[in-house]
Design a protein around this nucleic acid. Sequence first.
DNA 1: GTCATCTATCTGTTTTCCAGATGGAAGCTA
DNA 2: TAGCTTCCATCTGGAAAACAGATAGATGAC
Lengths: 296, 296
Amino acid sequence: MTVSLDQLQAFVAAAEAGSFSAAARRLGKAQSAVSTQVSNLETDLGVQLFSRATRTPALTPAGERILQEARVVLERREHLIGLASSFEQRIESRLIVAIDELYPEHALGALFADFAANFPHVELELLFPLMEDVSELVRNGAADLGVMWRQEELPVELGFQTVGWVPLKLVCGRGHPLAKEKVEWEELKRHRQILVATRSTSSSKRRLRIAAEVWWVESHWVILEMVKHGIGWAFASDHVIAASPATSDLVMPDLQFDAGDWPVALELVWHKQRPHGPAAEWLRARLGSTRISTAL
Amino acid sequence: MTVSLDQLQAFVAAAEAGSFSAAARRLGKAQSAVSTQVSNLETDLGVQLFSRATRTPALTPAGERILQEARVVLERREHLIGLASSFEQRIESRLIVAIDELYPEHALGALFADFAANFPHVELELLFPLMEDVSELVRNGAADLGVMWRQEELPVELGFQTVGWVPLKLVCGRGHPLAKEKVEWEELKRHRQILVATRSTSSSKRRLRIAAEVWWVESHWVILEMVKHGIGWAFASDHVIAASPATSDLVMPDLQFDAGDWPVALELVWHKQRPHGPAAEWLRARLGSTRISTAL
DNA sequence: GTCATCTATCTGTTTTCCAGATGGAAGCTA
DNA sequence: TAGCTTCCATCTGGAAAACAGATAGATGAC
């Protein structure tokens, strides 16, 4: 009896993704590979993990229990790999950090000034990926660290830590129908919402969507321009609003159901398996301890 | 980066066995297979686990740390498999229990009478393996449960639980030089000791050896016969002494350094991975709760 | 110096896993 | 109800990984 980690990984991915096909897409494998791995695991364990009564398999009670244990095994393996990589105590020559544009830039200056003083020879690259999923960049190795919005679920390979909250404000143009007193929830639905476009297929693509009709735009600045021209309404953070030339033409509707601030949690993410050099560790510790203040 | 369980298993086995060759024998694999697995693990982790300065590799400090984590991963996998097998709630048709002869037989009668009443259709086989290692029998599946002496280390696949203590008494013949008053420790060393022979290569082969000169005999009864004839001295348990025809010719030396009883811990062992049916579970619980009394 | 034992490497074979194709079924929509 | 999309299990051919066994060189015990 073997029970390999690949089998457990396929099993956990299938349970979390909801189907073998979705798990295959997540793992970058063929659907038949996932199906076979799960089936082999059931044979090795002598237990049926999924019920095949419906089109997409559903976890059995035994499967629910085994799933918890499988997660633990995979986590212990990640921890072991993380421990191994901590032995490579060499300062990395290059560091790539992906930061969601929602993170207030003013907080970055002092942080990276200290970083430069502490690590004068590290070549730093900061990404502000608007059209890509930060977690995916960290996961596939294109970035060493990431700061992003909280997501419902992260790949098991990623560790995370909340680093603060950023308030979003709902804005529209002066002539927009929402630029009046006493705006109700249903009215938001009826008017076009302009959202940030991403090329990711993750659930983050649909974050903060409220309206039935939406536009997708790949630029915060262009979004505010469109809002100014009354094409629709949008969420934006304070520092983006303050920096926009359209600021004077934007108004915040008088929402009857909310104080007007929508706090969004920002999280630092890293890959558990990837070697953490002293520079990344330093930055991670600082980002983790430098709480973003909602009062700028 | 993969890091498979087979790699971790090879690594742990090598660390515990002291060499790749010994690990290969333990795992039933070719030496080259273990060597390659460990080498691949080092590559995958990016850490050197063994130093190759001497003939047999020695753990590096990083290897020591990783070893602990590897054990945890393997243990979690065993636990998962054990959980899976607990879902097979079917009473087994046959049960094989290996019990070291040191276990007092009088305690077995009532126990198995209850067992027969509770599981009338289970075919029971009791082994009293004198020439074989109980733990090895359980490990390779020749026995479902085992009762044995405590050992320095058990294979990771085995679970264990202390079930009691059995006093051993030191005996010699009436005409033996030790059959006098005030026997010192050094004198035990100088006279031949007769030990139980096993065909196992484990450390249990050397258990309780004190004297420089020893004989190995594959029978408790024959050992007492030889003791009776003054060939040497030996340890024996009360119930073996009481049942031997040589009883009246045996004396217990007047030890100056000890009360005369050498308590030996008996342990119940089982294979974590093997499905535990209700019968085995019942027996395990009873053996675990029925403490052997030193006062018969 | 001899012998036993160990490790790393190599080779050929076996086993395992993979992607892709396919057929059948479930579920959604018009 | 028909058509379409999506999913799963199975099959096939190929690739990759792991294996056992052989071997050379080195270490260590006697």
